[in-house]
């Protein structure tokens, strides 16, 4: 099987999308003769047509991106618009998405996933599915006990996809936990993230006391 993985994170190579993608590809390549190429959308920002041309030359394409304000980042939308002229062509790839976000619940990703499915139908690509994962900001600093389980699930998804050409629903269901946080979880997770992720970085930059600044106050 041949797969083109488009890492469409605005952060390019050093991205949470990239970390999850690596685990997926590791699994995918375990099947002999499978090949995968990775492209970074940021590299094509001034030349989207070059990436559009590549798109139609593959059997399978997965586009990975972070959730930005409850949808795809503007730069990813620009790429989706650039794909519009391919609409209805006979040689289009099967298309899947890998979407992750900062908030811990998968619920935030459900609506953009619906959009992506509709996008696939609109352009005329067979839809592979959407791989969704919340709680991904700061993946490189999250403790191993948090990440190892879902990194291995991404590996299994890739392995299974590499064998069957399908994105396994059962693994998606496991990855999608938690869909919502319980009240107890909420009470634990929120202060932890505020401190360990955000205050720690502001403190390091010496701006914790400016945290609530309102520089654009009318």
């Amino acid at each position: 099987m041949r797969l083109l993985f488009i890492n469409a994170s605005p952060r390019g190579k050093k991205s949470n999308t990239g970390i999850l993608m690596q685990h997926f590809i590791r699994g995918f390549l375990e099947t002999p003769d499978n090949t995968c190429e990775v492209e970074y959308l940021v590299k094509y920002k001034n030349n989207l047509n070059a990436l559009t041309e590549k798109f139609s030359a593959w059997d399978n394409v997965i586009i990975g991106f972070p959730l930005y304000v409850d949808a795809m980042p503007g730069s990813v939308k620009a790429f989706m618009e650039a794909l519009a002229p391919l609409k209805g062509r006979k040689d289009l790839p099967a298309l899947g998405f890998m979407i992750q976000c900062g908030f811990p619940e998968t619920a935030h990703l459900r609506f953009v996933a619906k959009y992506c499915e509709k996008f696939s139908r609109r352009i005329g690509c067979r839809f592979l599915g959407c791989i969704l994962k919340g709680g991904c900001e700061g993946l490189d600093v999250q403790p191993t006990f948090l990440t190892e389980k879902y990194f291995s699930l991404f590996g299994m998804l890739g392995l299974d996809f590499g064998k069957t050409g399908k994105i396994d629903e059962d693994i998606l269901t496991k990855l999608a936990r938690p869909e919502h946080l319980s009240a107890e979880n909420m009470a634990m997770v929120v202060p932890f993230i505020n401190q360990a992720l955000w205050d720690a970085q502001m403190e390091k930059n010496g701006v914790l006391n400016l945290s609530f600044d309102r520089p654009l106050m009318p």
């Binding site: 304000v69 795809m72 980042p73 503007g74 939308k77 620009a78 996008f119 609109r122 352009i123």
Partner: peptide, 12 residues
Amino acid sequence: MMGFPSHLLKNA
């Protein structure tokens, strides 16, 4: 545009 407002608006 492809079922969603433009990238210009989303970037803003």
